[in-house]
Amino acid sequence: YIGSKISLISKAEIRYEGILYTIDTENSTVALAKVRSFGTEDRPTDRPIPPRDEVFEYIIFRGSDIKDLTVCE
């Protein structure tokens, strides 16, 4: 799965898409590269977040912050 395009939804209901870079089982983290944030879209939340235009080089997510993770390709 390393190198695959991943769609990830955080506990804050924010969806991110990026390339799976590393999975650290010891620290329970997932790192994505070339990440875009799509905001909360239409998911119900107390704090709606708009999508962002910039592409983040890397984002490291803690396993406890991840609600859903899907391989896109």
Rank of each mutant, 00 (worst) to 15 (best):
G3S: 03
G3I: 13
G3M: 03
G3R: 02
G3E: 01
G3T: 00
S4G: 03
S4R: 15
K5V: 05
I6V: 13
I6R: 02
L8R: 01
L8S: 02
L8P: 01
S10W: 04
S10P: 07
S10C: 10
K11C: 07
K11I: 12
K11N: 05
A12T: 11
A12K: 15
E13D: 13
E13A: 10
E13H: 11
I14W: 02
R15W: 01
R15V: 03
R15T: 05
R15L: 00
R15E: 02
Y16K: 05
Y16A: 01
Y16L: 02
E17W: 01
E17N: 03
E17I: 08
E17T: 10
E17A: 03
G18Y: 02
G18R: 01
G18D: 02
G18Q: 02
I19R: 08
I19M: 07
I19D: 06
I19V: 10
L20I: 06
L20V: 13
L20W: 02
L20H: 00
Y21K: 13
Y21A: 15
T22G: 10
T22R: 12
I23C: 14
I23E: 11
I23T: 15
I23G: 07
I23P: 03
I23F: 11
D24H: 05
D24M: 05
T25R: 12
T25H: 12
T25G: 10
T25Q: 15
E26G: 12
E26C: 06
S28R: 05
S28E: 14
S28T: 08
S28C: 08
S28Y: 13
T29G: 10
T29W: 08
T29H: 13
T29F: 05
T29E: 14
V30D: 03
V30R: 07
V30T: 03
A31S: 14
A31C: 06
L32Y: 00
L32E: 08
A33N: 10
A33W: 07
A33K: 15
K34F: 07
K34I: 01
K34H: 07
V35K: 00
R36M: 09
R36T: 08
R36P: 08
R36H: 07
S37Y: 08
S37C: 08
S37M: 14
S37K: 05
G39W: 01
T40H: 02
T40Q: 01
T40I: 02
T40F: 00
E41V: 00
E41C: 02
D42T: 07
D42E: 12
R43L: 03
R43A: 02
R43C: 05
R43H: 06
P44F: 11
P44S: 11
P44T: 09
T45W: 03
T45C: 14
T45K: 04
D46M: 15
D46A: 13
R47Q: 13
R47P: 07
R47W: 10
P48S: 12
P48L: 11
P48Q: 14
P48D: 10
I49H: 06
I49K: 10
P50F: 10
P50N: 05
P50D: 05
P50S: 10
P50W: 08
P50Y: 09
P51F: 07
P51E: 09
P51M: 04
P51N: 04
R52I: 08
R52D: 14
E54G: 11
V55F: 08
V55H: 06
V55K: 07
V55N: 07
E57A: 08
Y58S: 15
I59A: 10
I59M: 13
I59E: 12
I59Q: 09
F61C: 04
F61S: 04
F61I: 07
F61V: 05
F61W: 00
R62P: 14
G63D: 15
G63E: 15
G63I: 07
G63P: 14
S64A: 13
S64G: 12
D65H: 05
D65Q: 13
D65A: 07
I66Y: 09
K67D: 05
K67T: 05
D68C: 12
D68I: 07
D68V: 08
L69E: 03
L69W: 15
L69N: 05
T70A: 06
T70H: 05
V71K: 09
C72M: 07
C72Q: 10
E73V: 13
E73S: 10
E73D: 12
